[in-house]
Nucleic acid binder design. Sequence first.
RNA 1: GGCGCCGUAGCCAAGUGGUAAGGCAGAGGUCUGCAAAACCUUUAUUCAGCGGUUCGAAUCCGCUCGGCGCCUCCA
Length: 485
Amino acid sequence: MSLKIYNTITRRKEKFVPINPPKVGMYVCGVTVYDLCHIGYARSAIVFDIIYRYMKFRGYDITYVRNFTDVDDKIINRAGESGLQWNEVAERYIEEFNADMAALGVLTPDVEPKATDHIAEMLEMIEALVDKGMAYELDGSVYFSVKSFAGYGKLSGKNIDDLLSGARVDVDESKHDPLDFALWKASKPGEPAWESPWGMGRPGWHIECSAMGRKYLGDTFDIHGGGKDLVFPHHENEIAQSEGSSGKAPVNVWIHNGFVNINSEKMSKSLNNFSTIKDILKTYHPEAVRFFLLTSHYRSPIDFNTQAITSAGKNLYRFYDLFSEEKKLVPEAPPGPETDTSPTEKFTELMNDDFNTATALAFLMEELRRINHLRNEMSRMKKKSDRYKNARTQFALGVRTMKKLGGVLGLFQRDPSDFIDSFKVAKLNEVGVTLDWIQKLIDTRAAARAEKNFAESDRIRDELEGKGILLRDTPEGTTWSISLD
RNA sequence: GGCGCCGUAGCCAAGUGGUAAGGCAGAGGUCUGCAAAACCUUUAUUCAGCGGUUCGAAUCCGCUCGGCGCCUCCA
């Protein structure tokens, strides 16, 4: 049973063979810190978070590097608009980014390099390219000569001639070739600037990832990831720079995640139809967002819509509803193995198929049903019987395994009561009622029920239901939950 | 213009040659005073359409229709 990953550059699923097992090096393009992150980036972050978690789960010693682009035209423009310094803009949005990632439960990568901390490494690579005749200087800027690199286009499947005939290539008369891209940009007065052999300037966008990837992971490393939109030109250019300077292919496996669409349309800055992570989290629980994003395969587009995410939230709630039973049914952890091998193997098999979280999640839902079935049966058994004790052991093992496997997807790690309470609190605020008010109605209803005054008790239940508060009469008394619709 | 992706039940979605996972919504049942939750049963002779290859196709090939992406900063 081996891990297979779809490799963009070969357009095939391939068996994953690390260069230097058990070590794995993974570089993922982070964000340019000039604005709040949108939900599309949340998907990318969560996809690679899961790849990171899964590699660890499989026993790999993975080093995960995710950069911050903290110098760039957009940051400079934002600084101009806001009156802040460019580095203040970058710092602010790094903080916002970190808060978003923490909210979404995304693990912190092992290394989070900033472009501005690696100017020397970039200059070194640029100089090597100039020395090899693959780059040239023009008015204090340095450009990569696309025609000098024979493999240009191999990642995105484009050829140079087709690109030239495209209508949207920027036409800069001074470049030797319209496709040539900037490695180093001469700085205008007031812009961030570093010394270089070609005068004061700042790095081009693509060079930072080449330089930092090499610094932290070596000339050739295992995995490079990012959103689909980065395939061209960003990653194509990275290959040109890295391979051009070292003579070695920089990356073995290229992984690209699909977009998040809104109403079936790509969300983008230019269409101004994007939702920030912060916006989304005002309405939806972060773990529900994660669950939702995992219900389709990472390479497929996913449509962000209310119904889909509501459904994800309901399913997630069902898991926590079961977990909240654990304490009651199994007050002390019974002896036995930490996890059940059969579900673990099944889960691994599903995830080994190019990180198919959709099928892995479907499997966990089948497990959920299996354990709930067991719970139902237990409610009919005599508590002192061996059968009950045996079932309880199975229940505990099942729940533990589910939590462990869910953890590989970044799910199920919260305290069940906290999770459920957070939904309740949100609901109370939404409909403007208090806990006391609900409890009072529940007590009144209990009295009515005791007198078999079902008309009154049903009236109270309907009143609460009208507020989205659903009652459950159990042998231990009446509890309540909320409507997730 | 070049390159590429997608079209599976009311909805979301997995499935890339061996006879359609899972979820939401719906229907019936168990439980319940009645409900809720949970569980059980049920819901696509069929995978946009038409041809072809094959013993066998949602899966491969061709054409048609429809939707989308990249080629410009974007995850």
